[in-house]
Measured scan of single mutants.
Amino acid sequence: PDDLEKRARELLKRGKNPDEIREYLRNAGYDQSQAEEALKRAL
């Protein structure tokens, strides 16, 4: 898994919901489609 996916998994483990994770990834400078893909793979 790429770093983005790892980060998404990490956040899920900490109890973040998908919307929070999307926002976090966007704020971290990733584009929307990258964030969506990583989140899908992590779920």
Rank of each mutant, 00 (worst) to 15 (best):
D3V: 09
E5M: 15
Y30T: 03
Y24H: 10
R41P: 01
D19G: 06
E36H: 04
Q34D: 11
D2C: 10
E23S: 05
L4R: 03
P18F: 10
Y24R: 04
L12P: 01
Y24S: 08
P18W: 10
A42I: 15
E36K: 03
D31N: 12
E37L: 05
L43C: 09
L25D: 00
E23F: 03
K13G: 13
D3C: 08
A28Q: 12
K40P: 01
Y30D: 01
D2H: 11
A28I: 11
Q32M: 14
I21D: 00
K40L: 11
D19A: 09
L39T: 04
E23H: 05
A35C: 08
E23Q: 08
R9T: 09
L4A: 14
K6Y: 10
E20L: 04
R7P: 01
P18G: 06
E36C: 07
N27G: 09
D2W: 07
G15V: 01
R7Y: 15
E20S: 04
G15Y: 03
E10A: 07
L43R: 05
R14A: 15
E23A: 07
L12V: 11
L11E: 05
A28Y: 07
R9L: 14
G29Q: 02
P18I: 12
I21H: 00
N17V: 07
K40Q: 14
Q34M: 13
L4T: 05
R9E: 08
S33H: 14
R14E: 15
K40G: 09
K40C: 12
P1I: 15
A42T: 04
A35V: 15
Q32G: 10
R41S: 08
L4S: 06
E37Q: 10
E23V: 04
Q34S: 10
D31H: 07
A8Y: 03
N17I: 06
L11A: 05
R22V: 15
D2P: 09
D19E: 11
L25R: 00
E36Y: 03
E10I: 05
N17M: 10
A35L: 14
Q34R: 11
Y30N: 03
A35F: 10
R26S: 10
P18V: 12
D31E: 11
R22H: 06
D2A: 12
Q32W: 13
R22A: 08
Y30I: 08
A35D: 01
K13H: 11
E36A: 05
Q34P: 03
I21G: 00
K6G: 09
L43W: 05
E10K: 04
Y24P: 00
E37S: 08
D2F: 10
Q32H: 12
A28P: 01
L25V: 01
K16T: 08
R41N: 10
D3Q: 09
R41E: 05
N27C: 08
G15N: 03
E10Q: 06
E10D: 13
K13S: 13
R14V: 13
R22D: 02
Y24V: 12
K16M: 15
I21W: 01
E10G: 04
E20N: 03
K13M: 11
K16C: 12
L25C: 03
K16H: 14
K6I: 10
Y30R: 01
E20M: 05
L43I: 10
K6Q: 13
R22M: 15
K6H: 10
N27Q: 12
I21E: 00
D19S: 10
E5N: 08
L11P: 00
D3R: 07
P1N: 11
P18K: 07
R26E: 09
L4M: 09
K16I: 13
Y30K: 02
G29I: 01
R14G: 14
K6D: 10
A8H: 00
A38K: 01
L25F: 15
N17Q: 09
R22W: 09
A35K: 00
Y30C: 08
R22G: 04
A38I: 13
G29L: 02
K16V: 14
D2Q: 11
Q32E: 14
Q34T: 11
R22N: 04
R9I: 11
N27E: 13
L12S: 03
K16Q: 08
Y24E: 13
L12D: 02
Q34N: 06
S33P: 08
K6A: 13
S33Q: 14
R22T: 08
S33V: 13
N17A: 10
R26Y: 10
R7I: 15
R14N: 15
R14D: 15
G29D: 02
G29P: 01
L12W: 02
R7N: 07
Q32L: 13
P18Y: 09
L43K: 04
Q34F: 07
A38M: 07
E23M: 05
A8I: 15
R22L: 15
Q32Y: 12
R41L: 08
E36D: 11
S33C: 09
R22S: 05
G29T: 01
D2N: 12
K16P: 01
Q34V: 13
L39G: 00
L11H: 03
L43F: 07
E10T: 04
K6S: 11
R26I: 15
D2G: 11
E5I: 15
E5V: 15
P18S: 07
S33F: 13
E5R: 07
D3G: 09
L11N: 01
A35E: 01
D19T: 08
R22E: 06
Y30S: 03
E10M: 04
I21M: 01
L43D: 03
A35P: 00
L43G: 05
E10C: 08
G15P: 00
K16E: 06
Y24D: 09
D31T: 14
K13F: 06
Q34K: 10
A42V: 14
R26T: 12
R26A: 11
E36M: 04
E5C: 11
D3M: 11
N27S: 10
I21S: 00
E20G: 02
Y24I: 15
K16L: 15
L11S: 02
E5P: 05
K13D: 14
P1M: 15
Y30G: 03
A42M: 13
L11I: 01
L25Q: 00
D2R: 09
L43A: 06
L39C: 02
G29F: 02
E37C: 07
